[in-house]
Amino acid sequence: MQGVVKVNSALNMRSGPGSNYGVIGTLRNNDKVEIIKEVDGWYEIRFNGKVGYASKSYITIVN
Protein backbone atom coordinates (compact mmCIF):
# COMPACT_ATOMS: atom_id res chain seq x y z
CA MET A 1 0.00 0.00 0.00
CA GLN A 2 1.29 3.47 -0.85
CA GLY A 3 0.89 6.69 1.09
CA VAL A 4 1.72 10.38 0.74
CA VAL A 5 2.92 12.55 3.63
CA LYS A 6 0.74 15.63 4.30
CA VAL A 7 2.43 18.08 6.72
CA ASN A 8 3.15 21.81 6.89
CA SER A 9 6.82 21.38 7.77
CA ALA A 10 8.29 17.94 8.56
CA LEU A 11 7.28 14.58 10.02
CA ASN A 12 9.61 12.48 12.16
CA MET A 13 10.21 8.88 11.15
CA ARG A 14 10.78 6.91 14.35
CA SER A 15 12.30 3.58 15.33
CA GLY A 16 9.04 2.38 16.94
CA PRO A 17 5.31 3.14 17.01
CA GLY A 18 5.26 6.08 19.44
CA SER A 19 6.68 9.54 20.06
CA ASN A 20 8.93 8.12 22.79
CA TYR A 21 11.00 6.24 20.16
CA GLY A 22 14.09 7.81 18.60
CA VAL A 23 13.98 9.77 15.35
CA ILE A 24 15.65 7.90 12.48
CA GLY A 25 14.65 10.18 9.61
CA THR A 26 12.56 13.12 8.47
CA LEU A 27 9.70 13.11 5.99
CA ARG A 28 8.58 16.17 4.02
CA ASN A 29 5.23 17.18 2.56
CA ASN A 30 4.30 15.05 -0.49
CA ASP A 31 6.98 12.39 0.18
CA LYS A 32 5.74 9.02 -1.04
CA VAL A 33 6.09 6.08 1.36
CA GLU A 34 5.30 2.37 1.31
CA ILE A 35 2.94 1.43 4.13
CA ILE A 36 3.78 -1.98 5.57
CA LYS A 37 1.19 -2.19 8.37
CA GLU A 38 -0.68 -0.18 11.01
CA VAL A 39 0.33 -0.39 14.69
CA ASP A 40 -1.67 1.53 17.33
CA GLY A 41 -2.31 4.66 15.24
CA TRP A 42 1.10 4.55 13.56
CA TYR A 43 2.14 3.19 10.16
CA GLU A 44 5.19 1.03 9.76
CA ILE A 45 6.65 2.49 6.57
CA ARG A 46 9.52 2.11 4.12
CA PHE A 47 11.14 5.31 2.81
CA ASN A 48 14.48 5.65 0.99
CA GLY A 49 15.47 2.12 1.99
CA LYS A 50 14.74 2.64 5.70
CA VAL A 51 11.94 1.02 7.68
CA GLY A 52 10.43 3.02 10.53
CA TYR A 53 7.20 4.43 11.93
CA ALA A 54 5.21 7.61 11.39
CA SER A 55 1.89 8.82 12.78
CA LYS A 56 -0.94 7.76 10.48
CA SER A 57 -2.60 11.16 11.05
CA TYR A 58 -0.14 12.70 8.57
CA ILE A 59 -0.15 10.04 5.84
CA THR A 60 -2.86 9.80 3.20
CA ILE A 61 -3.33 6.43 1.47
CA VAL A 62 -3.17 6.55 -2.33
CA ASN A 63 -4.00 3.86 -4.88
Rank of each mutant, 00 (worst) to 15 (best):
K50W: 08
E44V: 05
G22W: 06
M1L: 11
G52F: 03
A54Y: 01
I45T: 03
E38K: 04
D31K: 03
N30C: 05
N48S: 10
G25M: 10
L11W: 02
Q2Y: 11
V4G: 02
N8Y: 06
S15A: 13
V51Y: 12
S15W: 06
F47L: 08
I36D: 04
R14T: 11
D31G: 03
Y53K: 00
D40L: 07
G16Y: 02
T26S: 11
A10G: 13
V23S: 09
S55T: 11
Y21F: 15
G49Y: 05
F47C: 04
S9P: 09
K56S: 11
I61N: 06
N12Q: 10
V7T: 11
V7R: 07
Y53M: 02
I59V: 11
K37R: 08
S57L: 13
S55F: 09
Y21K: 03
K37F: 08
D31N: 06
M13L: 10
I59D: 01
Y21R: 03
N12G: 10
D40F: 07
I61Q: 07
K32E: 13
A10D: 15
A54K: 00
I36N: 07
K6I: 12
G41L: 08
A54I: 11
P17M: 03
S19Y: 10
R46N: 15
E38D: 11
E38P: 04
V23T: 10
I35F: 04
N12L: 10
N20A: 13
V33N: 00
Y58K: 07
E34Y: 06
G16K: 03
G52I: 01
K32D: 08
G16E: 03
G41W: 06
S15C: 05
S55G: 11
I36M: 09
G22D: 15
V5L: 03
V51M: 11
I35T: 02
G25A: 13
R28F: 14
S15K: 09
D31S: 06
I24Y: 02
T60C: 05
L11Q: 10
V4C: 05
V5C: 04
K56W: 04
L27N: 00
K50R: 10
D40K: 08
P17Q: 02
Y53E: 00
Y58I: 06
L27S: 02
G49H: 15
D40S: 09
I24V: 14
N20K: 08
K37N: 11
E38H: 05
K50Y: 09
K6S: 13
G16I: 01
N20T: 08
V33T: 02
K50H: 12
G3N: 02
G16M: 02
G25V: 09
V23P: 08
F47Q: 06
V39C: 04
I61K: 08
E44R: 04
V62C: 05
S55Y: 09
Y21D: 03
S9R: 09
E38W: 04
S19R: 11
W42E: 01
N48P: 02
N20S: 11
V7Y: 05
V33F: 06
F47D: 03
K6N: 15
G25T: 10
F47W: 07
G3V: 04
A54F: 04
G52K: 00
S19F: 14
G22S: 12
F47K: 06
K32V: 15
I59Q: 00
V39G: 04
N63A: 12
E44Y: 05
